[in-house]
Design a protein around this nucleic acid. Structure first.
Lengths: 123, 123
DNA sequence: TTATTTATTCTACATTTGTAGAACAAACTC
DNA sequence: GAGTTTGTTCTACAAATGTAGAATAAATAA
């Protein structure tokens, strides 16, 4: 469940797209594109560590995630809060809203998301 | 400005404490404690990469951070949002409030933090 | 059906990360 | 002042990471 920086980037593309072939992946990289074998290595490592599965079609494979982006980032954010924000989600939230320089509109929309969450807790 | 996992942990201690000597650092690690030289290596690497400074006292040094915890995590969170949450802080916030399982009280307190931020934007 | 393209595996190698021994010097203990 | 402790530098080494060549096999284009 732990990904390196380049693996994370590759996973993100597959998470967004749902499934992907080598071909699709290569397309997303800007020039100078990495060697095909570089991507192949990453895909193999991700498969070995249980992050990706695949379905074979002829000489190529359709890769798909074995866990979701939410599951992954949930772990990451929780780790962050636990280890660096005193195990306090509110402390983190407060830090976050200050540091990300949200516009008034974004803050308003965030406020209503939170109001919804509060409502759903009441049920 | 980029720290590895163990470096991050060490920095966090120094951020919390303000400044620290080797001695203080070693104390924080649970048994089995790492070798002194292990910590020394980390301190040297952090010094080399501009994360720590120090003041010499006899044979030892008082280390201090050259940038704050906020600065560091601000970078991290912004990177996270930019690369994995579609450059949308609200998207991230929404994800965050759902995934961290905040209590009603925490949500209420978060709401008031946001209301304060909204107010301060109005000025 | 032969040449070309595409995807995969295997091997390789430099860099970064995690961990620590050897050697040494300053400081503290008797 | 000799022995022990503490902190540093230098060296080392395994594992993880980023990157890719060589070889090969399947698919495709001419």
């Amino acid at each position: 469940m732990n990904l390196s920086a380049t693996e994370e980037q590759l996973m993100n593309f597959i998470w967004e797209k749902g499934t992907a072939f080598m071909k699709d992946i290569l397309e997303t990289y800007p020039e100078p594109k990495p060697a095909t074998t570089t991507i192949a290595t990453l895909l193999k490592r991700l498969t070995d560590k249980g992050a990706l599965g695949f379905k074979t079609y002829g000489n190529s494979r359709e890769y798909f995630p074995l866990y979701s982006k939410s599951e992954y980032f949930s772990g990451k954010v929780n780790h962050l809060i636990k280890n660096f924000f005193n195990d306090s989600p509110s402390q983190f939230a407060s830090f976050f809203t200050k540091e990300t320089n949200l516009s008034k509109e974004q803050l308003e929309s965030l406020k209503s998301i939170i109001e919804d969450q509060i409502k759903s807790k009441k049920l």
